[in-house]
Amino acid sequence: MSAVKAKILFFYFGDENFRYGVAQVYLHVLNGLDKSRFEPYLVVTGRLASPIHGLSEDVHVVELNKPGLKKSFFSYVATIRKIKPDVIVSAMEHPNAISVLARWLSGVKAKLILTSHGVLSARIAHMWRKKEGLIISTAVKVFYPFADHLVGVSRYVRDDLLKFTNKLPPSSVIYNPVFPERVGREILPAEKEKGLIVTSSRLAALKCIDEAVRALQYLDEGYRLVILGDGPEQARLQTLVGQLGLKPRVEFAGYVDDPFYWYRLAEILVLPSMWEGFGNVLIEAMSCGCQIVANSQAGAPSEVLCNGEYGFLYEGGNAESLANNVLKARSEPKDRQSLINYASEFTDVRVARQYEQLFDSLLMDA
C-alpha cells in the first residue's frame, strides 16, 4: 500500500498571464517537487488567459475566478476546506496576510509558510501611497507572527522584514529556482556578439531601464542595447532613446518567451533596478556566459553576485558608473565557465528539495 501524499497548496494572487516574479518561482518549485510524495495544488485568485506554459500535468490548478484579493477571500477559504492541504504556501505581503486569516477561518490545521520576494521597505517607500504603506506594514506586524515559517528569497529580503516586526516566525532563506535542471545542463553559450548589452525586466519605473539607455552615451558606437520586457514605461523610454539620438543602437524586443536566445548572444547583462529581492535574470544570463553589471545599492544582487565575485557592481543612479563597469566587464571579464557552474546550482529540483525538507520538518511537528 502506497504512503499518503502530503497535499501542498500554493496560493497565487493574479490572473490572465502567469509570467513574472512569483509566478515563475512557483512554476519551478511546483515542477521540481517529488510527485510520489507530494500532491501539489496551485490556487489562482483570478482566471488564467491560457493554460500555464511548462507547468507539470501533475499540478492541480484551481482558478477562483474572482477579481482581487477581497472578492476571492471566501472562495479561497472554501477551497482550503475542500482540499484540506497539509501545507499552504503564500507569497507577497497582501496575499500573506489574507492567507493567515483564510487558514484560521477555514478551521483546517494546515502548516502555513509565508514567502517574501520583495524588499518591503523599498516597496513602501517607492510603490505605495503613505496610507497603503502603513496598512501593509501594520499587516506584516500583526499577521506574520501567526505563520509557521517564513521564507525569504535572499538574506537581504528576510533581514529587511525585521525592520517591521521583531516577532517573525522561524525563518530560512531559499534562493529562487531559475530554470529546470535539464536547462541548466543544456544551455551553452554561443558565439557572443561584440558590444551587445541586454537588460531584461518589466518596464516599470523602479527598474530604472532609462539608466541603461543613458549609459550608452558614455560608450562608443560599437555598443548596442537590447531591452527585453514590456510595461508602462515603454513609451517614455522610447521617447528618451529618440531624444538622445540612440535609435540605431537600442532595440525594444518586448516580452519574449525565450530570453535565453538573447543571453546566448549578449556579452553583458545589466541590471539597473532600484531594488531587487533576488534578480532571476542575473542567474539566467550567467548560465549563458554573460558578464553581469548590477546596481550595488539594489539589495539582493550584491548578495547573489557574492559581492562582486560573479559580476560587477556599480553606483546606482549614475549612468557613467554603469558605463565604466560595462567597459571593465569587457576588459577584465569574470571566468565564463565559473559563471556557468555557479548558475547551474539554481535549478527547480535543487530548490524544490529545500522546500521539501521544510515541508517534512513542519509536518513532523504537526
Rank of each mutant, 00 (worst) to 15 (best):
F74P: 10
P51D: 10
W275P: 11
L206S: 09
R264Q: 15
E39K: 08
G118E: 13
S361A: 07
W104M: 07
D34K: 02
V29W: 01
D86I: 09
E191D: 10
S90W: 02
K5S: 09
F164Y: 15
G133S: 06
L9Q: 02
R158G: 05
L228E: 12
L219R: 02
A285L: 11
Y156S: 10
V25E: 01
S50M: 13
S201H: 05
E315H: 02
N65Q: 15
K334F: 14
E284F: 13
E39W: 06
G118V: 13
C290I: 04
I209S: 08
P95M: 06
V198D: 03
V151T: 01
L313F: 01
F13E: 10
V349I: 14
L322N: 08
L134Q: 11
K109G: 01
A329Q: 04
Y144G: 06
S99P: 05
E39L: 08
S90N: 01
V157L: 07
A329D: 04
Y355L: 10
L64P: 14
V349H: 03
E267Y: 05
L271Q: 14
G254A: 08
T79H: 09
L269Y: 09
K70T: 14
L282W: 06
A49S: 15
A212P: 05
L168D: 11
L114R: 02
L358M: 03
K70S: 15
L112T: 04
L322P: 14
R214N: 08
E193P: 05
Q354L: 14
E57F: 07
F312R: 00
E193F: 06
F252V: 04
G32N: 06
G21E: 03
E211L: 12
A294M: 12
R155F: 05
L271T: 12
D160S: 06
G279V: 01
E93C: 05
Y218C: 06
E181F: 08
S338Y: 05
Y26C: 05
L105Q: 00
L203P: 08
S171T: 08
W128D: 11
N17S: 09
Q291N: 04
Q217W: 04
K71T: 15
V293A: 12
Y41R: 01
I98L: 12
S36Y: 03
M364I: 09
G277T: 01
V213N: 01
